[in-house]
Design a protein around this nucleic acid. Sequence first.
DNA 1: CGATAATTGTTATGGATCATATCAAATATC
DNA 2: GATATTTGATATGATCCATAACAATTATCG
Lengths: 173, 173
Amino acid sequence: MTVSKTAEKSSEKPGDGAKGRKDAAEGLPEALQLGELSEQLGYVLKRAQLKVFENFLRCVASLQLTPAQFSVLLLVEKNPGRNQTEIASTLGILRPNFVALLDNLESRDLCARIRSTNDRRSHILVLTDKGKAVLTRAKKLVATKHESRLNELLGQANREALLGMLSKIANEF
Amino acid sequence: MTVSKTAEKSSEKPGDGAKGRKDAAEGLPEALQLGELSEQLGYVLKRAQLKVFENFLRCVASLQLTPAQFSVLLLVEKNPGRNQTEIASTLGILRPNFVALLDNLESRDLCARIRSTNDRRSHILVLTDKGKAVLTRAKKLVATKHESRLNELLGQANREALLGMLSKIANEF
DNA sequence: CGATAATTGTTATGGATCATATCAAATATC
DNA sequence: GATATTTGATATGATCCATAACAATTATCG
């Protein structure tokens, strides 16, 4: 967390090598220099992602939804009748790891597995009434508390540009 | 990983609800609709971050460096003489988890722990000669193969704008 | 048709990452 | 000098990510 605090005042020299500089006597904590790190795409991307997830969790804390769970609900709502493999793979989740995630949503009566009639191997996924209601509330919370935060921070135009560039990276990098 | 691959060999169908429609006869794979998911900041951020880390690993594969290890080397080079707690905390790494990371770098003779003379509790961190050489090569690989990829994809101006917005999110969200 | 291959959901499992509690040694504080 | 704090370290658990393997079902094709 305490990362890019952007070096406030480096009045003194940073590295003291091995010979002494009494910190307690001098007082200044002396922030580190990030240097080229702040220009590294991966570094800044990861930090931003952590902050965004953290904020997301706070915003929907009342509904007890993680970003992954929210994305599953969104995708199932938009594509009702798909099976586990389809939903999981489009989210980049491996099938084995998707089982526990679904178990959780199903145990909370947000989502249901239904045996397909034309392929009795697969489980068709649908949202329950409660799942739809929770998702609706989640969308509202995310829109008003989470995504709106971006507009305040970047402005509408920049926000759209950012999403566009990130999508491009996600798809074409 | 296999997310936005736009459904290659999935011989499935879209929403068939519970009643059957034979897919094998029809043919079309019919990709899922991402819907609002593609507008979710967290979703697209995470996907982009995974792609970028993946690409980073490929680019510096010859040096066997992870993004985290690279960031440690960069920060120690820029701030020689700092101790483990300082380096770890500015990277957002908890002290206990930083130990194994450092053990690795030290075992490969890229970094060294030196007992501080004025505080014999702390370990001063410095890069070894080999560490400096490896970091120099890593920087070159990252600049020419990794970061340059962004310019090709977004252009110089957009790349800078992207980094600026991500930094803002990382610091102010 | 029937033997074989492939798919679906699942379990088991291991690795990597992340967080907390705790400890000994050294230092700071009062 | 007694107590508290800091530093690096260990142990441990949670969570996430990836692979192998399995039973049930379906597809393939000889």
